[in-house]
Write a protein that binds this DNA or RNA. Sequence first.
DNA 1: TCTGGGGTCCTACTACGT
DNA 2: TCTGACGTAGTAGGACCC
Length: 474
Amino acid sequence: MDAFYASAEQAAKPSLRGKAVVVGGLGPRGVVATASYEARRFGVHSAMPMGQARRLAPNAAYLVPRFGLYREISEQVMTLLRALSPLVEPLSLDEAFVDLEAGGVADDQASALAVGERLRADIKAVTGLAGSVGLAASKMLAKIASEEAKPDGLRLIVPGTERDLLAPMSVRTLPGVGPATGDHLRRGGITTVGEIAEAGEDELVRLLGKSHGSALYAMALARDERPVVAERESKSVSVEDTYDVDIHDRVRVRGEVARLAERCVERLRAAGHSGRTIVLKVRRFDFSTLTRSETLRGPTDDPGVVREAAARLLESVDTTGGVRLLGVGVTGLADYTQEDLFAQAQAQAEAEAAEALEAERNAEGEAHEEAQGEIRGERDGESPVEDVAETGDAPIPPAERRWAAGHDVRHADYGHGWVQGSGLGRVTVRFETPESRVPGRVRTFRTDDPALEPAEPLPLMAAPGEGAGQGPLV
DNA sequence: TCTGGGGTCCTACTACGT
DNA sequence: TCTGACGTAGTAGGACCC
């Protein structure tokens, strides 16, 4: 899918079509997740710090990601892909490999092209969004082809032409070559794929080591035998938070680690897993990153056990100077646990303690948990939780923070719209739906206006015979 | 206002048992 | 009994991807 998150937002918000749209974390340490092609013209790109993006494109629309919406669209696209072949390997929400041969598609170019064009038309019809298709004999080449096809195109790499096509390309085109490997190769006098092929395998192994060197050499010769794998077992589960302001207080650090451990176990359990190795991640004030891990005697999904292991690991880390990120992960996954009676009894006690803590927190101010949920689910950097904790400011009431930029709302009188911005006790809403033919009207309300409430995203494409707002996406 | 979040894979080093 | 070789597990860090 092309500029997926940004395209989905443009489809959902007619007033943004043809405009620069940037989706990502809006907090002081946010980065760009996706920029629309209009925003890319200003030099904005993925992984760029949001502050830099704002300087380059001050008039762009800045929105927080809505993963629920993207997941629904992704599932629609994956359903179309699975109709083509039983072998579909999703890479992310917006990308997948499909083994057309396993789907019985004739292996001539005309058949492949026909399938590709029909798929693009189907994606457009079902989601309203543009998707690009790369057709080739291997995963690496298909990926390169799809990059070349963007935006909104189709590209087939004809068998036999692969090496000539790859030769002049930058080494960075090959999967697995990032900034570090790219620099390494450049220092060895290698900047193009053709030069990798000329250098020979021995030289590549000398430069990059056995595994990486051999793999890269094979790729440069257009050799890639990796199969399309439909089912992938996940190998780890982790959660991490970057804080708007570095945390210096050791007690707070401990509290955050405990909270992250619980969230991690929630994820672990939701996935039906347990795990044996607990990993603590700490990014310090100077961006240096440490990990510490501990392997248990058997796999667990017990929040108390994970929390205590994470706490022990924290004790071996110096956090003076402050931390900007904390994370807790579990690896060595299994689908069973070695619970014993003691652990179960402990779990019971933990649950009760957690409930009591939760009740206490709610009493203190329910805004806290709500904001954390937003970081968790929506990667919204807007939450000022850290400022609250660090500065001792009064918590911002829920109504102030509920209106994240880009999120859907419904007003009792004006109907469906989305949040353009909020602050100083006001929230500005544009009233439009994916079906609107012209940009909707903008109105401003008090953030605590009882007529205004959060709403679910509307389907991008109305079902046949239905108008907008008639129900959830199928 | 410099640098997110959730992953995978690889390498190097150390400890330990045989 | 001592020592070296070797395989394996655990640990930490780095690179990369979307």
